[in-house]
Design a protein around this nucleic acid. Structure first.
Length: 96
DNA sequence: TAGGCCATCTGGTCCT
DNA sequence: AGGACCAGATGGCCTA
């Protein structure tokens, strides 16, 4: 019936709302420095993937190597920069 | 104005 | 049976 459909629609809306909240949480922990537009869902997943991969790479290194890699602020931004190359390029084009 | 991104509706399928 | 999950269709909004 129409009532049932409307209820199903409402549930679906709530479900998507939960999904989008999860995306927002992910956006917060994923590096996206100097970004004026929020990451799209696709970009968020790509960013999370490359970020996890990068962190995994750091874990493979010895503590001293990892420590040296992130010893100053410029270096800690290294991983973020790497992940953001494509999107920043897009934003730079936007600037011109 | 075309393309990208998104929210919503919808019907089908799977799970409880 | 009824809810959760999913993917296709559709229309709106924004930007290059």
């Amino acid at each position: 019936s129409r009532k049932r459909r409307q209820a199903a629609n409402a549930r679906e809306r709530r479900r998507m709302e939960g999904l989008n909240k999860a995306f927002d949480s992910l956006r917060k922990v994923v590096p996206s420095i100097s970004r004026r537009r929020k990451l799209s869902k696709y970009e968020t997943l790509q960013m999370a993937l490359s970020y996890i991969e990068e962190l995994g790479r750091i874990l493979q290194t010895t503590p001293s190597e990892a420590n040296e890699k992130c010893s100053n602020e410029a270096d800690t931004l290294h991983c973020d920069r790497k992940c953001n190359v494509k999107i920043e390029k897009k934003d730079d084009e936007f600037l011109r």
